[in-house]
Design a protein around this nucleic acid. Structure first.
Lengths: 366, 366
DNA sequence: CCCCCCAGATACAACGTTGTCTGAAAATTA
DNA sequence: TAATTTTCAGACAACGTTGTATCTGGGGGG
């Protein structure tokens, strides 16, 4: 599977000393002082056009590009024109939509985004975040993973601008952009109750994550509103692997048998639908998920969801961050982005107790 | 939607001069020279343990963290322990799987990944890539967007290590990790031909992208093998927006009517299935897509695909890059990652000319 | 007792760049 | 024409750090 390319010069093995030209080389070639070359590179007007032309030609010949590391070290304003983005998981659709939105806003301002994906590991979150800070980013956008962001307190008091997205930071106060998690969850469950469901299960991620707490609260309040006693056996948390979710769904139908499910996160929704397919229950058990995903409308049956707007969240977070970088002072703010119930079918299946019971008996026999 | 947090100190508005402590502050507090403090920070053994302890305590008190920008500037080896990753679109599942794999490998080596998403814009690709190079990254992993990467020639000859993923670079020779695009496409189309299809359409992305060229070649060769004359009207390229794809699919069935489709990219597959649903053709027209996507197995009908292995591609790319950074010299290599036909249903629909014709007539009337 | 050596600390230069200050020549004014 | 201002190039320091050279003092050997 490895083939070497036909005869060409070797690549790799950088001789790190002989590398890139510096402004000194440019000045030398142009026959001016180093500072004059610097002036030309930075478009300062106080240079004789003749000389400027010579410098520019030299820079072009050498393919000179300023070393931004050196520049950032020296520049008075101390802006590196770089922001850091910490994601809980780059391959989650929610994350990558946020990333894309942030990059688009940053791009308009010629700001580079340094992103780190921490795979839901709080230690990695901390390491990555501090590594970004040590690189002197102008600000941080974080989708928190762990339940303690206090390691940022010093950075913040040193003036680092921080915006959290999706999940509020814990033990730290920062600008935050979040969805209406409570309201959305409540709406989802109300919707299921309106369809006639009474045995509704909650499938959620790690219990300490702020969004999960809110979504579960919404779930419980919707039940209470309808005077439905919550059944603890129908509340499953700590789901974050495909296997775990599959197992949990099967377990649910082995013993208790909900007639509807509320899945509190996009990956959980996806895996739950997959499990329902395997159990041939997808047409018999209703489901509403929190957070939309790419193919939700062409799944069988199409999945009803509480849709978040990750692009808007990323956009707002980036804008809040840039305002702070531009000098806005004031107390930390929280922006809540509304969510929307999208009805597609999975949450509005006709209820037929008979068929469901039949299928479940069949399953339990097997 | 904006609420201010209850009484706390303000955030933002960094006083950029009074910011973070430097090693000078640490040395001062510890009562030693700057260089001694530096030695302690860098775990050099030639320091009296007494003093070392004092320095460490001072560093802790001040919450000192080295300024990596300054360090990188000075350090002899010139490694910044940072690599750049340029993606064609962060929100594409393929891209984000690559990103995740690269970050995982990099993380093991304590390397930070700076990534840029360029939204399939060649100019942005160039800008972003050079911006990363100017930040002195130790290497670059690029999923090329444009049809000319020669702007990197100087960087490369200055010793920058570059690995391309998915799409080969054009007008430049670098290490490359790619799928077996030709073989995969051929296999997909052979599979459709084996099911009895003769009128097979090709739906592809921008024509200049290396992968598209290969996949189209595979498509055409499979037809030729079976002595099927390709019909130019069934070859649609330059698809890259949801609307465009929807429109193209509708157009296909207005005039010519393929009985099967080969969609050459994941986004195209998704939108094509969506369009088929709208036209109520999803059970009548067969489809095989190139590149898998998250919900492909629970879509109605489940989508048969040629699955790539983006995680493996990212992993291999990162490993090749690190080998180069570690000093491996030699000609540029190309690694081909095998692909796999996954049969799920959409490519194996029973052919019923009658029903299809009926539905099409109905459609054209409307 | 002197010299040397070594451990271990400090002083100074350097990385590539930009901020500040100085100086020289040109341009303007009196 | 002399005095003064303006223009603009260059010298030098500095950013925060590490590499190298130098210094200091204490211990051991002659």
């Amino acid at each position: 599977m490895v083939e070497t390319a036909p005869s060409t010069g070797s690549v790799g093995g950088r001789d790190r000393r002989s590398a890139r030209p510096t402004i000194k080389d440019v000045a030398l070639l142009a026959g001016v002082s180093l500072k004059t070359a610097s002036r030309v590179i930075n478009d300062e007007p106080t240079v004789n056009p003749e000389l400027a032309k010579k410098v520019r030609r030299a820079a072009k010949v050498l393919d000179y590009r300023p070393n931004l590391i050196a520049r950032n070290l020296r520049r008075a304003d101390r802006f590196t024109h770089t922001i850091g983005l910490v994601l809980f998981d780059a391959s989650n659709q929610f994350s990558s939509a946020v990333q894309r939105a942030v990059e688009n806003i940053a791009n308009e301002r010629n700001i580079v985004v340094i992103s780190s994906s921490v795979e839901e590991d709080p230690q990695r979150e901390k390491d990555a975040t501090l590594a970004l800070a040590a690189r002197q980013v102008d600000g941080l956008i974080i989708v928190p993973t762990g339940d303690d962001q206090s390691y940022l307190a010093n950075e913040q008091s040193n003036g680092m601008n921080i915006v959290c997205v999706d999940r509020s930071p814990q033990l730290l106060r920062t600008d935050t952009v979040a969805s209406d998690n409570y309201g959305g969850a409540k709406e989802a469950v109300r919707h299921l109750i309106k369809q006639g469901h009474k045995k509704i299960a909650f499938l959620g991620d790690r219990a300490h994550i702020a969004t999960m707490i809110e979504r579960r609260r919404g779930f419980l309040d919707a039940l209470e509103e309808a005077a439905i006693e919550p059944n603890p056996a129908l509340i499953v948390i700590d789901l974050h692997t495909a296997e775990g979710i599959n197992h949990a769904v099967r377990a649910l139908f082995q013993t208790d048998s909900p007639t509807a499910l509320f899945t509190a996160q996009n990956l959980i929704t996806l895996e739950t639908v997959r499990a329902l397919h395997q159990l041939k229950l997808e047409k018999l058990v209703s489901l509403v998920g929190f957070d939309d995903f790419a193919a939700s409308d062409i799944v069988d049956p199409p999945v009803s969801v509480i849709a978040q707007d990750p692009a808007e969240m990323g956009r707002r977070a980036a804008m809040m961050l840039f305002e702070r970088i531009d000098g806005r002072v004031g107390p930390a703010e929280t922006v809540t982005i509304p969510v929307k119930l999208i009805i597609r079918g999975s949450g509005e299946l006709p209820i037929s107790e008979g068929e469901l019971t039949a299928r479940l008996t069949e399953l339990r026999k097997a």
